[in-house]
Simulated assay, not measured.
Amino acid sequence: MPSTSSDDTTSVGQISNNDKSKYGREIEGLVTGCNENNLSLNAGKTKEMIIDFRKRRGERSPIYINGDDVERVSCIKFLGVRITNHLSWTSHIDVTVKKTQQRLFFLRRLRKFVMSVRLLTNFYRCTIETKLSECIMAWYGNCSAQDCKKLQKVECAAQTITEANFPSTDSIYMACCCRKAANIIKTHCTLVMTTYNLFHQTAGMEVEHTSQQVGEQLLSSHY
């Protein structure tokens, strides 16, 4: 039977008091689960990242998958977001700014071709703003002031080229958070109303059933 590769599979383990047994069992469980479900786990593409904020950091022995050692990295890309072992977003923002600056070149070219402001605005929103706001709820709230300035430079450059006003990254972040909160509240209210309706219907059926039983008992006792 052909096997399927297990892409974007993540396993998180904790090492407490230098006890690596639990972490080792987590890796073994991952390998066993992939084998049982006919999934191919490529050790060459698998990366290990250790997050340790202790002052005294001991040496960690490498882990092995099917006899192959797993590469240990300090930065990993997960679902489009770059995460470092220091939980800093500078690496992710640097890559994002570099890509958006490359797209600013095409925006300048369109400006030289005397394109309309509307077309330039659409190009910015589709190619640059979407990249700046990609997974913004995961990283923007904890980025440093220096990283925020890097994003602002891209926005200012785009506004200078197009001579139009665009929403700042901060406003985009707040709008995304508000929409997410509204969806959570809406889902929660819908769940509460559904539970209430089910409880109300169940209670009504129980009352009706109880009334019918009482009526039958009264009739049988009368005759």
Results as ranks from 00 to 15, higher is better:
P2R: 12
T10N: 04
S11E: 00
Q14G: 00
I15Y: 01
S16F: 11
S21F: 01
I27P: 06
E28A: 05
L30S: 02
N35G: 03
E36F: 08
L39N: 07
L41K: 04
L41S: 05
A43F: 03
T46Y: 07
D52R: 00
D52Q: 02
F53Y: 10
F53D: 02
R56D: 00
E59Y: 09
S61D: 12
S61N: 15
P62A: 00
N66M: 03
G67T: 01
D69Y: 13
E71M: 04
E71R: 03
R72P: 05
S74H: 14
C75V: 13
I76G: 06
K77F: 04
F78G: 03
L79T: 08
G80P: 01
V81F: 03
V81R: 02
R82T: 15
T84L: 01
N85V: 02
N85W: 00
N85K: 06
H86N: 14
H86R: 14
S88F: 05
W89I: 04
T90M: 06
I93C: 07
V97T: 11
K98S: 13
T100I: 01
Q101N: 15
Q102C: 08
R103E: 09
F105Y: 09
F106K: 02
L107V: 01
L110S: 04
F113I: 07
V114A: 11
S116W: 05
V117E: 11
T121R: 13
F123S: 02
R125W: 05
T127M: 06
I128T: 00
T130Q: 07
K131Q: 11
S133W: 01
A138L: 15
A138W: 10
G141H: 14
N142V: 11
C143K: 09
A145D: 10
D147P: 05
C148P: 00
K149D: 14
L151K: 04
K153V: 06
V154L: 02
Q159G: 00
Q159N: 04
I161G: 04
E163T: 09
A164C: 11
F166T: 10
P167R: 06
S168F: 08
S168P: 10
S168R: 08
S168Q: 09
S168M: 07
R179V: 08
R179Y: 12
R179D: 13
A181S: 13
K186M: 12
K186F: 12
Q201S: 15
Q201Y: 10
T202K: 13
A203F: 10
E208N: 15
E208T: 12
V214M: 13
V214K: 14
G215N: 13
E216N: 10
S220D: 06
H222G: 08
H222D: 14
